[in-house]
Design a protein around this nucleic acid. Structure first.
Lengths: 150, 150
DNA sequence: GCGAGGTGCTTGACATTGGCAAACATTCCA
DNA sequence: TGGAATGTTTGCCAATGTCAAGCACCTCGC
């Protein structure tokens, strides 16, 4: 849980309030995601991996999407495969590559995961269009000049 | 890393942009914190625990602050204590309680951690006062009616 | 066409984190 | 005073993360 929750460098009051709000939003998201995953008897990481396999993708792509080492993804996909949620296929054109693809059961689980994460589906639901745009502009300022990275 | 990064429920475009920005801010924070901890040869959790011990606090309080089980904090504090960054003291008034307090070396490490986390110290530095207030208002709307919780 | 080097995936060893049950001392309350 | 609750520790186990090594395969240059 790498969130600002507790790295308490004491900032000014408004910053502290903003940090608290970020943490709260993060928790709302993470809590929802964790509950949704648990309802499918999955860990959050397994759920993320499953969600990444709607279309067949190489192991490597899953690892990149989850910001994890490919070697770790092997075990995660192993568990998903044991449960029949995912299958490994040969990739046409490169026999080194294994494509991970959700099975029918996997796609059902994906649908239920998404249904159980309404906040993730519409996080800005409480905001009007102008407010959404204003929020994005402000967040961009906070992010600052960031490193480009897919 | 429980961040929205990859629980890809496909939302509308503005929401997607906002999610990306949240993730980017989270990463900026977490990356800075992780680097700061690593510079002290600490894990992020160890660093958080250390930061919580500026003043002597019961183990239980450290656990609460880090949203972890007290039983897990035992091992974390053990490592900090082995390295002389922290010490356990008896608590006056309740002989069950052990207070964890940063040593001089620990306080030095805390200062260096904070110095290495400028973004955490002033996350809204790029914003003016009105922008900060606007941001907080918008974030409060996004959080929504939240459960009260220290 | 052949070999060197790079890429994709897996395996293994290991440390850290997280949850949970059990044990122990101590405190609190009826 | 006795039973319940609290604070801390220990142990076990699953999951995650980093790292090095290995195997299969592809690619590039000669």
């Amino acid at each position: 849980m790498s969130s600002p929750s507790d790295m308490s460098t004491p900032p000014d009051e408004l910053s502290a309030r903003a940090i608290g709000l970020f943490v709260a939003i993060n928790r709302r998201y993470a809590g929802e995601a964790e509950a949704a995953a648990a309802a499918q008897d999955l860990t959050p990481l397994q759920a993320k991996a499953l969600l990444a396999t709607m279309d067949p993708v190489p192991m490597r792509a899953v690892a990149d999407k989850l910001h994890a080492e490919p070697s770790n993804i092997t075990a995660v996909v192993d568990r998903l495969e044991e449960r029949g949620l995912v299958e490994r296929r040969a990739a046409p054109g490169d026999r080194r590559v294994k494509l991970v693809a959700a099975t029918d059961r996997g796609r059902t689980a994906i649908a239920e995961l998404r249904a159980a994460m309404p906040f993730a589906g519409d996080p800005l639901g409480a905001l009007g269009t102008e407010q959404r745009e204003a929020l994005c502009r402000l967040l961009e300022l906070v992010v600052g000049p960031q490193e480009r990275q897919a």
